[in-house]
Amino acid sequence: MDKVIIADNLSLSYSNDEAIINKVNFSVNSGSFVFITGASGSGKSTLLKSLYGALKPAQGSLIVGGVELSSVSRSKLNFLRRHIGIVFQDYKLVKEWTIEKNIMLPLIINGYEKNVTKNQVDSLLKHVRLKHQSGKYPQELSGGEQQRVAMARALSHNPILILADEPTGNLDDYSSGLIWSLLEGANTQLNTTVIVVTHHIPQTMNIDYKHFHIEYGSIHEVN
């Protein structure tokens, strides 16, 4: 099975500080569903940041989608990011754009044709139950609704990898359930690799998944 992520002796740190992630080795197979857990400040989000190239490895090697991130060029990083869908804890929606345009963003960047973009966005808005709110702006929506928009945006361009940073952190049960079912759907139906950083793995997961736990800068697989 192809590996989407290969970390070899990987250390991560901010500037010259002490390593948050220290010489870890792990890999993720294509099409797998992975949870990364750990206490607050253990380095879960830092590890996720490194997976989309927002933080360069301080030491070791990190290969995502065949791209070595320790020495990646800006254009190659942009190319990689075009094939990744990211869901942030704070949503990161563009405030001055409607939710429809926010969902369109990865499709525009990837150069999809207008009619394809329109159909895809309509379909995703139905999936996240926000069709009736398409013309609204992010600040007009609740936190749960905004996260559903962010989820739709992450899925819009059928990425090879979805990275989600505590996607249901502050959400109500309804929105949380919807987010988990969308992530499961992407994994099972589109064979998208999904990596979720979270404090708690939901009890309702209906699929096989891998579980990594981060503690004291080390990562280990939980069986």
């Binding site: 254009s75 942009n78 990689l80 990011r81 075009r82 990211i86 405030k95 001055e96 963003l105 960047i109």
Partner: peptide
């Protein structure tokens, strides 16, 4: 800045 950063996260040149 915020919009440009978000676009950058999704690989916009």
């Amino acid at each position: 800045n915020e919009r440009m950063s978000i676009m950058g996260l999704f690989g916009a040149p």
